[in-house]
Amino acid sequence: NCLEGLIFVITGVLESIERDEAKSLIERYGGKVTGNVSKKTNYLVMGRDSGQSKSDKAAALGTKIIDEDGLLNLI
């Protein structure tokens, strides 16, 4: 459970895995996936064609922004 207690938001199109697979992977390792960035969000996983508003909010809140490889490296 290397992601225990961590909260993730996924945005954009992921290249190597589907969004549902990424969500399942995060949950399997103890993390939680939500739909919107908040002060409780630990990581924003940004894929291709992701919206600017979520990354702006993450930056404003100090949320770590990672890509798909960054997510896989956490596991």
Rank of each mutant, 00 (worst) to 15 (best):
N1L: 06
C2N: 05
L3S: 00
L3T: 00
L3W: 01
E4N: 12
E4L: 01
G5A: 00
G5C: 03
L6Q: 12
V9F: 04
V9D: 06
T11Q: 10
T11I: 05
T11R: 10
T11P: 07
G12C: 02
S16K: 15
D20G: 11
A22I: 15
A22C: 13
K23C: 10
K23L: 07
S24K: 14
S24P: 02
L25S: 02
I26K: 00
E27A: 06
R28Q: 13
Y29A: 08
G31K: 00
G35H: 14
G35S: 14
N36L: 10
V37Q: 01
V37W: 06
S38Q: 04
K39M: 10
K39E: 14
K40F: 07
K40Y: 12
T41E: 00
T41K: 01
N42K: 03
L44E: 01
L44T: 03
L44V: 10
L44S: 01
V45R: 01
M46T: 12
M46F: 05
R48H: 07
R48W: 02
R48G: 05
R48C: 05
D49G: 14
D49R: 12
S50M: 08
S50G: 15
G51F: 11
Q52R: 14
Q52G: 12
Q52P: 13
Q52F: 10
Q52W: 10
S53D: 15
K54P: 08
K54N: 13
S55Q: 14
S55V: 15
D56M: 10
D56H: 10
D56C: 11
K57G: 07
A58W: 07
A58Y: 06
A58N: 04
A59Q: 09
A60K: 12
L61D: 09
L61S: 08
T63H: 05
K64W: 03
K64P: 10
I65A: 04
I65D: 04
I65P: 04
D67S: 09
D69S: 12
D69W: 11
D69E: 13
G70I: 04
G70A: 08
G70Y: 07
L72E: 05
N73T: 10
N73R: 12
L74K: 03
I75S: 00
